[in-house]
Design a protein around this nucleic acid. Structure first.
Lengths: 116, 116
DNA sequence: ATATTATGTCGTATATTTACGACATACTTC
DNA sequence: GAAGTATGTCGTAAATATACGACATAATAT
């Protein structure tokens, strides 16, 4: 038995799902919002602003970093995290394309077999 | 120890994360794309178009239905699923607002403490 | 009524996610 | 070099997600 089955789905579907999963936890949403709101890219004291332990926050940071959504630069003793805005823009476009396709398609109407 | 901790995050962050989680599996992305592409709202033969068992597809359908992203109407022996386009549009707006905020914020530049 | 078909639910097994304490590492400061 | 600080990694535990066979249910067809 294989879990997290991926064969049979398009690369686009898998990529969108991977990016969606990155946003599928409020902590990671909050981290991205935090990084966006700070003028300078703040370091791991991100944990101080979240209701989670430093370890857990570090784990979430690594997940975002693995997808290249954020980047970290070691600056002496502290680590400076920043958003990868270029990638975020591309991801935004992909989400938009998906939602446009999902909402502009022929919706169920009274003429159809069912009436949702 | 509490898992899936939510306290301390805003309602918006939690809602966005919940919707992102709905798209965090290629099967659910594929299901939404399928429903959008079909002229009429197709029924559970969705499973025939996906590389998953009917049981697993039904499970994914229930998850989408629980978030009201899709709706199902019983029509005799078959069940007719449709997209909730109004909700999808609202979710699209929320994702857009999030991405705009994340990408339009002050990015890390050469003037900052670090240079990501 | 019985068979067939479409669908959902239950049970279960495995994988993954989430969370955090404890430890290791590396840099700064004294 | 020793002490302190910021950070990452490891180990581990609990929760959740994923996947599917087996069964239940309900409508249709014969």
């Amino acid at each position: 038995m294989t879990y997290a089955k991926t064969t049979g789905f398009t690369a686009d579907q898998q990529y969108l799902a991977r990016m969606a999963k990155a946003l599928a936890h409020p902590a990671r949403v909050a981290i991205i919002e935090l990084l966006a709101s700070k003028h300078t890219c703040i370091s791991g004291n991100i944990a101080a602003e979240l209701p989670l332990s430093r370890t857990t926050v570090s784990q979430h940071l690594q997940e975002l970093k693995a997808l290249d959504l954020i980047r970290g630069e070691i600056d002496g003793l502290t680590v400076c995290y920043c958003l990868n805005t270029e990638l975020l823009q591309r991801v935004h476009q992909q989400f938009t394309a998906f939602f446009i396709g999902a909402t502009s398609g022929a919706a169920c109407g009274p003429d159809d077999a069912c009436a949702c």
